[in-house]
Design a protein around this nucleic acid. Structure first.
Lengths: 217, 217
DNA sequence: GACTCTATCAACACACTGTCGAGTTGGTCA
DNA sequence: TGACCAACTCGACAGTGTGTTGATAGAGTC
């Protein structure tokens, strides 16, 4: 009763007990979910579908995950973590050329999400009904807001950007714009930007909102 | 076979046949839906709940509406129409003071939605699973995008705004920002702007994005 | 060879949705 | 007035999904 028990927690959502081989089953379920989510929305995927895809019966599915939501949450956690990793590194490079700096940072985040279309759309769907998904997303957003706010403040402090809205409020508005614009582009829904225009358009709005001087008018 | 049959279509979603008294029932169902949506999310409301609230049995509900979604769609249609009405009138007044003009226009739209919190949140929830809801929303968005684009172009033509991104792309990004920011504020979700800050912040970003000169940098 | 722990599934209990058919009721007109 | 029709109502059913329970098979100790 000593080995391999501690240091788990991110996987609390996974199978009831650690150890043992049936570990491929867990991976098979996740892989099935990821595959099916590229084809159809979360609401059109049942536990039965996930179980069949992984070659097990529906009750057996519940041995590995407590619900369909838990599977998706695991997938979303991964994607968020991946995007976070990119973000970390993309911070410092602003000083020289602000536009290029922001562009680089935003691209990193778009690429992390753009390459996981199914998971991202499922996350949005989940957030409407699942509190845990909302909290997970809220946590990630909060981190981004904090980072972006402090960069904006730094840019103002060094005189590169003029004073303006409270940095946090500006950061929230810009990040929520990014979220929605990218979502609509990925979903291909209605009035949406073409995927290859998203970055150019958003960077332009960011730069004008942060560095543009318009004052009272 | 002559009276009152034509000119219906917006209510195609309503009860099977026109005429007759049980018209209050239809209204009772809509009122119940609107009331319950202020209390809890759409996903936590069943057809049974709507029927009981209107004082009828579940099968009888289906005499008036083909589904729970249809009820919400009717509510959303109304709200969208109401906001459209406001928008129409709020257009012309830009020339003198752009900031005040945009502010006025955005406020009209925010107020229409802000006063129907439950319906707006339900609409967002519905859009994730219901194609008809997506199309309804897409249509409204498209109208706004068209209007905003042509105003931006007019402002550029008269020399008030500098050239920049294609007007349509800019309009899409800004409108989607508004949508998301207001949604989060109404939902009170995670990093959100305070409701009484939404207008100030968004107007500032709009004005900088449309009128701000930043150029290459 | 008794014991234990992982892993598996048939069968069940629920919660919803949507439908069918058998009513009831109020107005119309022969 | 009484036969008829359309609006309206609901009990009972069928279908689909979720999550649980209990019994069981197998692999690895000791």
């Amino acid at each position: 009763m000593a080995v391999s028990l501690p240091a788990r927690k991110a996987t609390a959502r996974g199978r009831r007990t650690p150890r043992a081989s049936g570990d491929e089953r867990e991976r098979a379920i996740l892989a099935t979910a990821e595959r099916l989510l590229e084809e159809r929305p979360l609401s059109a995927i049942s536990v039965e579908d996930l179980a069949r895809g992984a070659g097990i019966s529906r009750p057996t599915f519940y041995f590995y995950f407590p619900s369909k939501d838990a599977v998706v949450l695991t997938l979303v956690e991964r994607t968020v973590a991946e995007s976070d990793a990119n973000r970390e590194e993309a911070l410092a490079k602003l000083a020289a050329d602000p536009r290029a700096g922001w562009r680089h940072g935003l691209r990193a985040s778009f690429e992390a999400f753009g390459s996981r279309r199914g998971v991202v759309l499922a996350a949005a769907e989940l957030r409407t009904t699942n509190a845990e998904a909302r909290e997970l997303w809220a946590g990630a957003m909060e981190d981004w807001v904090t980072d972006v706010s402090s960069i904006i403040e730094a840019e103002r402090a060094r005189g590169a950007a003029p004073p303006g809205l409270p940095a946090r409020e500006l950061a929230i508005a810009l990040l929520q714009m990014n979220e929605r614009v990218q979502h609509m582009a990925l979903a291909g829904e209605a009035p949406a930007l073409a995927e290859d225009r998203v970055l150019d358009v958003l960077v332009d709005v960011w730069v004008r909102a942060i560095y543009g001087a318009v004052a009272a008018d």
